[in-house]
Design a binder for these strands. Structure first.
Lengths: 188, 188
DNA sequence: TACATCATGTAAAGCGTTACATGATTCC
DNA sequence: GGAATCATGTAACGCTTTACATGATGTA
């Protein structure tokens, strides 16, 4: 009956991502964290500075981070607190993964049968091209210099997911082409 | 320069999902559509009745659907209009897939290195169990009677994605177990 | 001096969840 | 009569995006 405290029940993932970055890489400013989201968290979670700055203020109010120092140009360096570390740990081991899915690609897949085969082929071809671009982007993040080691497992997952989309697109294109051929065989 | 009209630029996916259902299955009430989301769109897009009812009203205002008839118990049957069909078609072929990703599982993958190997193993084991449950759920939706044919391609995609998560979890568990063994070899 | 980058914020609007609220009909 | 299901809605809150806004510092 005793429901765990509220942080187990609500979204919170932006907080967790920020705590994770501060935990892994040490104190940083909102500006640094915004860049980190763009650079190494882009395939995992997205947030802009307009979301990050106010969230850091709220997290400081809640004692999860604190302003460690203020540098040039009003730069504020945040550090994770022991309470913040504990919160991060609790979320990682205690938070039941949410089952919500909201995928535009899956929605297009769902609605594909509403289109003519030719149009459906165009849609899936575009999805495939996107997945290939994502795969290439992730590959670049990975191997050579790789200043970001934190994302090793997430990178592997991202690559596998992109490959899965490519494979699905290939299989779907094959099915659609069979259908296009059988529904209009006279043009051969 | 001429940006396409606003519907190309914003979210809209709930609208599209509703239009797709009305297009595929014919006129339906908000209640029916809510059930359809739960039953056949659950692995694609999620929405509850509190979101669907007001959205249908707005869509009627915009001329994409209309109240075709009113049945017992205040039941309102919505039908897609030609304009709605056109909007659905335009989105399918014209909307650039959004690149935003926000995945709690990927976030956990990213933060895995912040945990002890033992804890990380527990987290990944749970992710794997979830993916297996999702896979089984999708399998049930698929084969035998299958009153929902519309979701054929989306179902295939969902199964592939669930399998990918299972495969990633297995590979990650193997890596973590090697790490756990090498960091504490004396307990053998 | 002008432009790029660094660095921080606020405000408005839309999307999504949870809680609240109501009433009709059907089945036991 | 009571419970389950049918059927629709509103309100409050939180998350996310877009647009607006400001000023400091470095560099060509």
């Amino acid at each position: 009956m005793t429901c765990q405290s509220a942080y187990m029940l609500t979204g919170m993932s932006l907080r967790i991502a920020l705590l994770g970055l501060l935990d892994a890489k040490g104190p940083a400013s909102g500006y640094d964290l915004t860049k980190a989201f763009d650079k190494s968290l882009i395939h995992v979670w997205q947030a802009g500075h307009t979301q990050i700055y106010p969230e850091l203020v709220k997290m400081a109010d809640d004692g999860l981070v604190k302003v460690e120092s203020e540098g040039a140009r009003g730069r504020k360096i945040y550090a994770i607190t022991p309470e913040g570390t504990a919160r991060l740990h609790d979320w990682m081991v205690g938070h039941a993964p949410s089952t919500v899915v909201r995928s535009e690609a899956a929605l297009k897949a769902f609605l594909l049968t509403a289109l003519d085969p030719d149009e459906a082929i165009a849609v899936v071809t575009r999805i495939k091209a996107d997945a290939q671009a994502r795969f290439s982007g992730l590959e670049c993040m990975g191997a050579p210099d790789s200043e970001e080691f934190t994302g090793r497992f997430a990178l592997d997952l991202g690559l596998r997911q992109a490959q899965t989309m490519i494979d699905w697109a290939d299989a779907t294109l094959a099915a659609l082409e069979r259908k296009a051929a059988s529904s209009a065989p006279r043009s051969a």
